[in-house]
Design a binder for these strands. Structure first.
Lengths: 107, 107
DNA sequence: CTCTTATATGAATTACATATCATATGAACC
DNA sequence: GGTTCATATGATATGTAATTCATATAAGAG
């Protein structure tokens, strides 16, 4: 096991903003400004997230005039999300207690 | 998508110590003190990691006298690690740059 | 029931990623 | 080339989780 690669893999995805981007892109490709509008989120924040996701192969991008269209890489994301769904369903109670609550408070 | 559950899922696993524990447990069950020795790691640190992993269903434990034996939950971990291996192999170069280097430095 | 070994828990500090703000690049249109 | 719109990048501040150290619990041995 290449431990640091695993860590990077998980770290990138352990973030609300990036997960929201992934979620919304799973419904179809969007430009940066469209993502900002739909997620009611700052442009620079979205861009930072997209760069990280792209660097690690979770999304792809394509220039289209002034705009840049981002799309999910389904090969990794579809089976990954499916797998987690199954686990999340089982451990929903524990996993959900993290909602806006710090790790320590939830104990 | 239950975003916060996903976030929790990834956050737990985005950690060297927990990943080392998972890696070593994938070779077979061990007690806390055995894990400490093999990983050359403090006992309290290992225990904290194990509690987190257990709470979210990644490992199970069993009392055995004074000791407590921990083992992987293979149903989730085996397919998860397999999936990531495939992705990691493809994006190894990017994923590896994180080795002991902060996110900012690696750019 | 005391002592030792094994593990868990709590609190405080440290470390690190993200959010934010300011600014840079880049493309189209004039 | 200058202007405007779209996106990317950089630096710092902020927030949160991990590490650490001290201590608590728990189980077996004597």
């Amino acid at each position: 096991m290449i431990c640091n690669s695993y860590k990077s893999f998980f770290k990138i995805l352990a973030d609300d903003c990036k997960l929201n981007v992934i979620n919304i892109l799973s419904k179809g490709p969007l430009t940066v400004s469209e993502l900002c509008k739909k997620l009611e989120c700052e442009q620079s924040r979205i861009s930072h997230c997209l760069q990280a996701l792209k660097k690690f192969g979770f999304v792809a991008s394509q220039v289209k005039g002034k705009h840049r269209v981002y799309s999910l890489e389904p090969k990794i994301m579809v089976p990954l999300l499916k797998l987690i769904d199954e686990h999340v369903e089982k451990y929903h109670r524990n996993l959900c207690k993290c909602n806006g609550v710090t790790w320590r408070e939830m104990k």
